[in-house]
Amino acid sequence: MHKIEELVPPHVHLSLYNPTDGLPDLKQADALLIRTVTHLNPETVPNLPDKLKFIGTGSSGTDHIDNEYFESHGITLADANGCNARAVAEYVMTALLLWKEDRQPAKPFGKVGVIGVGKAGSAVVNLLQNFGIECVQYDPPREKRDPDFTSASMKEVLNCEILTFHVPLNKKGEHPTFHWLNEQKLEGRHFKLIINAARGGVIDELALMKFYTKGFVADYVLDVWEAEPDFNTKVANHAFIATPHIAGYSEQSKINATKIICDELAAFFDLEPAIPKYKNVSRTIDFAHIKYDLSKVLNRLHPIKEYDAALRDLFERPDKKVLFRNLRNEWPYRFEYEYLRIRKELTDKFPELRKLGVHPI
């Protein structure tokens, strides 16, 4: 967890472990902090020590944790919901801009359907609206709990030309999301672009590829995979952009995640939270004085295409699962657009950059 040593409450004894080696001995632990790569359930933790009272995951989603199992044993669970909302929104908008520049530079985007309008989905909506893009917001569960929100109908959202997904992965309950986009919903429709930066399994990948090869889905962008990290190389090969679950990865989102969980930990055990020693600094990106188009500028500012190229290099590798994890864990985190500074000449030439939050110098 990024900068955990700086953000853990004072007087907490912190013991670090490598999740690829499995879980550490929890007999003396009061709390366990994890990320999405660690799956917690009755099989992985069959014997729960009495002392363990708190589990925190530095992620927005919790589908890697059997919540009922741990809560039934009196363990409090905490997550970092919303920590990476802005990073995910920037990933989606960057993918949209690169796709438009490549596929339809002289045409408008068309109507975008946002499926799941929680913190990440709302951040996506804000960016789309900042660009003047018409969007349809679909989130029936939110409509039930939020009197100020009205969800579009399923028919309205499926009539959009572009879909982007921002829902948790639920296989049960009133609103299951597993294979939400399936053959039935794809049948008889045409989509310009489908983006999944939520969870693998929200889209039926084989159905998506089938309708892509038939010409009913023109393009798709996938950051998450059904059998992750053992991603389907055939599905990835056809993608306009394919990345290794890094949409929410940024310096700022990772700090947010750790701080949220450490603050939850402090509150639970009635401890003083840590006073952060770091500062949110900006980064200046140097551009040579040569001709740039928007795609080239975006590719300098956001590593989405670098991740795409790196993932494609794994297609024939027998150890692709390990290398997939390495791509997620070992690459340096990018800076979100708000913390980037570039020449004013470029922000003047490409107003899209200022709409993304890039500052001129």
Rank of each mutant, 00 (worst) to 15 (best):
G173V: 14
G200A: 08
N232R: 13
G121S: 10
A207I: 04
G56H: 06
K296L: 08
R343C: 04
I4T: 08
T177C: 05
S122P: 00
T36P: 00
N170P: 01
M93W: 01
V125M: 01
V92W: 03
L23S: 07
E251K: 12
T57I: 05
Y17M: 07
T213D: 10
V202S: 02
L186P: 00
F240E: 03
Q28G: 08
G61D: 11
D50W: 04
L298Q: 05
D223I: 07
I285T: 14
A266S: 11
D79R: 02
P9F: 14
W99Q: 02
T62W: 05
K172Q: 13
S153M: 09
Q104C: 04
Q28A: 14
E345Y: 12
K111Y: 03
V112S: 01
F350N: 00
L346R: 12
A152Q: 02
W331I: 07
K27E: 15
V224N: 01
R300G: 02
F231Q: 00
G113H: 04
E272K: 15
K51N: 09
P176T: 12
M154P: 00
D30I: 13
L298M: 12
H73E: 08
L298R: 06
R189Y: 07
E205T: 14
M1N: 05
V8I: 15
Q252I: 06
D25I: 10
F191S: 03
A242N: 03
E187Q: 11
P140T: 10
N196E: 05
W331E: 07
E143K: 14
S153R: 13
E338G: 12
I55T: 01
V117W: 02
K291S: 12
S250A: 05
A267L: 12
A207W: 01
L23K: 11
Q137I: 04
L356F: 13
Y278V: 08
K107V: 08
W180L: 15
T213P: 00
P147F: 13
N130H: 12
E272C: 07
L96V: 11
D139R: 14
L169Y: 11
G188Q: 14
L77K: 11
R325N: 10
L271M: 15
D146I: 10
M93I: 11
L26E: 03
